[in-house]
Design a protein around this nucleic acid. Structure first.
Lengths: 283, 283
DNA sequence: GTTCCGCATGAATCGATAG
DNA sequence: ACTATCGATTCATGCGGAA
């Protein structure tokens, strides 16, 4: 099956207006959190965050199919010793736009940022907010229950002793990265708590999430040939996974470095998958 | 040390007014969720939940010491296929009352209901909202530290004796700061994600949480002899744990069955702890 | 070719210092 | 007073060099 990876360089609020109505099956994105990525998005102030996001939310609503799903990865920020309320205010505002707040999953990050403070512990979780346009939406639950194939099993056997020891770490009672992701998926039915570590291997983009995260949602909410959109592409993790899973993908990124990085990475994936048939790539 | 367990039968909104100002160090409670416990609290409708809770929040604010903490365990409810917003609206409303929303911890319920999920994921987490009156509050973090993983232990054991001595001496001279930290450490601070199993053994009260939950907060925010309050006592888990940890406790419960159940259970605990000195109990 | 150890480094937060 | 910058703190992870 030929699937397309469409990369767009630009501000998503503007670029989204060029996409057709009801053309996207799944939106998975992680917008810049308040006060972060100041170099590209101007470091949105927490107090301005909702107003900044709402026009984008409006366009996302327009391009999403009636039975599609919107997954928003977002995190709160401590401001002046208190948890800022922009996330929960955003939920209320998006509902007024017409979005249905159907579910909230928790992403538990085992390797949260270290540090010690007199009045709080390390922040080790993020919101995964699910929004829909209608109460009936596409969902392929069987897809995330399928046990992993030989590829993953082969990888498990190749793990070094150190890795295996690390993965039995009791801190946080979570699981380590490699083993647990595959093992737990084999053994347990999923819940709305996802245990995944952030990946640190991508040195050019500081805020990547692990491939398992978009993979989970892409399998759950789309089928092969469907369209996946990430309006804040970053280094392109979502697009890369969509390609691997035979879904069409559109990624928008405002920063040229990340845009180029994503293009390069997806090309190499396509080389691997299709053994050199680069014509599958569009731009 | 003599600690008191004070049981009050009645509606907490009314009974709270009888408590003194600034007399409580920690409030840990799990109020009836919307639409649940309809027989006792009249089954508060989700839309009315915030208005119902606010007068109670006002009284809790009054009785809490300036450096005390209020932990609110609450869970969202799905209404008409959508996640209801009463929890986040309650956060905003409590802030207007003067509460600081200092933290939100996640209670990850490891053994949520097994089996297949119907139309959505199994719900495996609940909010643990932390509110304070001031940015400075009492917190004893060492009390809840977690043993570190095998990975670090394995490494430490392999250090030679000379290495240990050398690194220790470096501390005194100001060198080798990082190494010494690793050497002297076998425990790590927890994160804001709690991994606790739910208890299934108490059939007389429907909304029990495990003893480890109040225990964690009581250790973290109080010392022996401090005062703990649970305005929705239920079967008295919080009070029981407070007694065991040598904290004074006040529990309010509107339903006579639970009130009696809690009294009976705590009395047996006190029998065990003090070998029959029932005069420690007041009521 | 493996396994193991050392080291750098984060979607962070607080408190002190400086303008 | 109020904001801006900087140092100190902490631990899971990946990578590279060494056994």
């Amino acid at each position: 099956m030929e699937v397309i990876a469409n990369f767009i360089l630009g501000d998503c609020q503007e670029e989204l207006t060029k996409l057709a109505d009801h053309s996207i099956d799944l939106i998975v994105t992680s917008p810049p959190y308040a006060d972060s990525r100041a170099n590209s998005y101007g470091g949105i102030k927490p107090d301005d965050y909702v107003a900044w996001f709402l026009p984008i939310g409006q366009e996302l609503y327009r391009v999403l199919k009636p039975d599609g799903t919107f997954i928003l990865n977002i995190k709160e920020k401590t401001v002046n010793g208190e948890r800022h309320t922009y996330v929960i205010e955003l939920i209320l505002a998006l509902r007024k736009q017409g979005w249905l707040w159907t579910e909230e999953l928790i992403w538990h990050k085992k390797n949260s940022y270290p540090g010690k403070w007199p009045n709080r512990f390390r922040d080790a979780w993020e919101h995964l907010l699910q929004f829909n346009k209608n109460r009936k939406f596409k969902m392929y639950q069987e897809a995330v229950m399928i046990p992993m194939g030989n590829w993953a099993e082969g990888r498990l056997k190749k793990l070094s002793e150190t890795d295996k020891i690390r993965d039995t770490s009791k801190v946080g009672s979570g699981f380590g990265k490699n083993v647990s992701n595959w093992l737990s998926r084999d053994k347990a039915y999923p819940t709305n708590v996802l245990h995944l570590a952030t990946e640190c291997n991508n040195k050019k983009h500081s805020a990547v999430f692990p491939e398992s995260l978009p993979e989970w949602f892409i399998k759950l909410f789309t089928q092969e040939g469907d369209w996946v959109l990430d309006p804040f592409m970053g280094s392109g993790t979502t697009i890369k996974v969509a390609q691997r899973l035979q879904r069409n993908a559109i990624g928008i990124e405002i920063l040229p470095e990340y845009y180029e990085l994503a293009r390069t990475q997806i090309e190499s994936v396509q080389h691997f998958l299709f053994e050199g048939k680069e014509n599958y790539e569009s731009s």
